[in-house]
Nucleic acid binder design. Sequence first.
DNA 1: TATAATGTTTGAAC
DNA 2: AGTTCAAACATTAT
Length: 244
Amino acid sequence: MPEGPSIVILKDAVKMFTGQKIIAVTGNSKIDQQRLLNNKIIAFKSWGKHFLICFKDFTVRIHFLLFGSYLVNEKKDRPVRLGLTFKTGEINFYACAIRIIEEDINAVYDWSADVMNDEWDEKKAITKLKKLPGLMVCDALLTQEIFAGVGNIIKNEVLYRICVHPESKTGKLPAAKMNALVKQARVYSFEFLEWKKNYELKKHWLAHTKKTCHRCELPLIKKITGVKKRRSFYCEHCQLLYDK
DNA sequence: TATAATGTTTGAAC
DNA sequence: AGTTCAAACATTAT
């Protein structure tokens, strides 16, 4: 479920409830559910993988982690974590982490770090990366403070696309590769969004879970990389290692 | 059927 | 006190 583009799809799927009052709340979430009752939703927003339901005085933050899911006007045979009922329909959330944010979300979130946001700022991302020269690029792409919304699929596809080895150090990247990294983090995420909408995401994977490099026909390497210990799929021949 | 996987937080251990 | 690490959570396709 996760990765930023999927959250953008969710925002779109529930937009008809914007401005509506919640007339019933259900679920096993430990948040104070009563606070939502009879309260009007001001807006649905997102920051990276965070889905935000905004009310006048607080915000509900939903994170889907690895297995979270949601259904609009449907239920599934699983415990509902949070269910919101409106006059015209309902949203049900499953297996997700939910919190209430009391502070002004504009003070909490740096919108320019979200690759899906109009305020996404390449230059700021590069500045952040330059402060972490020893960080492997596989870890850098998964760092939400820099690339909010990027997950393991996008990581692998971006690095394959720009021909950079996942264990390269950000401080050793040539300027052109640094620029490509930051550029493609957003570009690929929007392609992901379109493919996902059309239920054809996997069809477009070139590296993630793949066995062979389509450029040189050599086998792709599958390896747990970086301090984040996530699996990387890469071509040792086509993706250059910049670490010295 | 067992396993692995689009992820993050927490608290113990160093 | 700061960093590292495993555990916990929860679902589903292969």
